[in-house]
């Protein structure tokens, strides 16, 4: 993508209806090219490869004539740039002011917070100022990093096993209708038990090591995956399945070519949920005892009433969750290049 054009097509027409009809045909053509486009009241902007765009611009006039206009005039605007120097439509029209608003809102809140603790409206040790939280974050960073490593290791191990379990359960349930009917309600039922409630039990059974944490994360993360994948499997187009059958495909090939790729979107949507569950699950299970991790760190700073460190770790945890979710979004874009959203 290195260029964008805007084209205003002005066909000669008897009346407004005729004009709109012809212009709509041109717009339909632009849509059919599959390129990024934006229809405005005066003109349509299209984005793509320069040569390709020029071909499209050329064709637009032909379309208008074929649609019945005796003649056509067009205003055409072009931007074209070397790789990296081209300013995409999306960035051009992105509102900087709206970003500015949300940034200033966050900034304003921080100032308010700083003010509250600076003027001693709330006891400083109960609500440490943002500056002291920042300071705590910096000085504690080596400790936080080590603990974050432990938590992330648990979260990833649990997430990996949870996703694998969820996936396998979904495949099996999809394959055997009887199992689906027998166990699906049970799977849903397991989710009504708050996982936090069984965490102490897991500690009693499996000790303070990694095992109870991983098990808890598996229990919380497999469910969204199973439900998501099953929904994906069940919503395949029956005509597409028939088509593959008529080509002689068996169940395995139908699964491989239709069901599995068809459920990818659902999979990533579920993975997004599971990722945040995994981090939260790891921290909660660490509260109940362990040898390291952000949850253990939290209970420790709580006991020493170091609220600044407490805030620092809360921010770290939400930052980690956000980053991981962003990572899933990027992964899903990478894995589903056909999905334009």
């Amino acid at each position: 993508m290195n260029a964008s054009v805007a084209i205003q097509t002005l066909p000669e027409a008897k009346n407004d209806e005729e004009l709109i009809r012809i212009v709509d045909q041109v717009i339909d053509y632009i849509k059919s090219t599959g390129l990024n486009y934006y229809v405005g009241p005066f003109e349509t902007a299209i984005e793509g490869d320069y040569d390709e765009l020029m071909d499209i611009v050329k064709e637009c006039q032909h379309i208008a004539i074929r649609a019945g206009a005796p003649s056509v005039a067009a205003y055409i605007k072009v931007t074209y740039g070397r790789k990296g120097r081209y300013l995409p439509l999306k960035r051009k029209s992105q509102s900087i002011t709206s970003k500015l608003w949300s940034c200033s809102a966050v900034f304003g809140l921080l100032i308010l917070w700083q003010g509250i603790s600076s003027f001693g409206l709330v006891d400083r040790f109960l609500l440490p100022s943002p500056i002291s939280v920042g300071r705590a974050f910096v000085t504690e960073f080596p400790v936080l990093a080590v603990n974050a490593g432990v938590t992330l290791a648990e979260a990833f191990t649990g997430l990996f096993l949870g996703v694998a379990t969820g996936f396998v359960i979904a495949v099996i349930m999809d394959h055997f209708e009887g199992l689906y009917r027998a166990f699906y309600p049970l799977v849903v039922l397991t989710q009504t038990v708050p996982t936090v409630a069984i965490a102490p039990l897991l500690v009693l059974w499996f000790g303070y090591g990694m095992a109870p944490k991983v098990i808890l994360i598996v229990l919380t993360t497999f469910f969204p995956i199973t439900v998501g994948m099953l929904t994906g499997f069940k919503s395949v187009n029956p005509d597409a399945v028939n088509l593959l059958k008529s080509m002689g495909a068996g169940r395995v090939k139908i699964f491989r070519y239709i069901k599995l790729p068809g459920a990818m979107g659902q999979f990533f949507a579920s993975l997004r949920i599971s990722v945040s569950y995994a981090v939260v699950g790891a921290v909660i299970s660490e509260w109940l005892g362990g040898f390291g991790g952000l949850g253990v760190y939290m209970t420790r700073v709580k006991k020493s009433f170091s609220f600044d460190k407490m805030f620092a770790v809360i921010f770290l945890i939400s930052a980690i969750s956000l980053l991981l979710m962003k990572g899933v979004d990027m992964l899903s874009k990478k894995c589903m290049p056909w999905d334009k959203q």
Partner: peptide, 18 residues
């Protein structure tokens, strides 16, 4: 016996992810 004659429908049924 499926698999010997080919079949095409009104809907093109092209798989969107391929």
């Amino acid at each position: 016996k499926p698999g010997s004659v080919s079949y095409m429908l009104q809907k093109d049924l092209l798989l969107p992810y391929r």
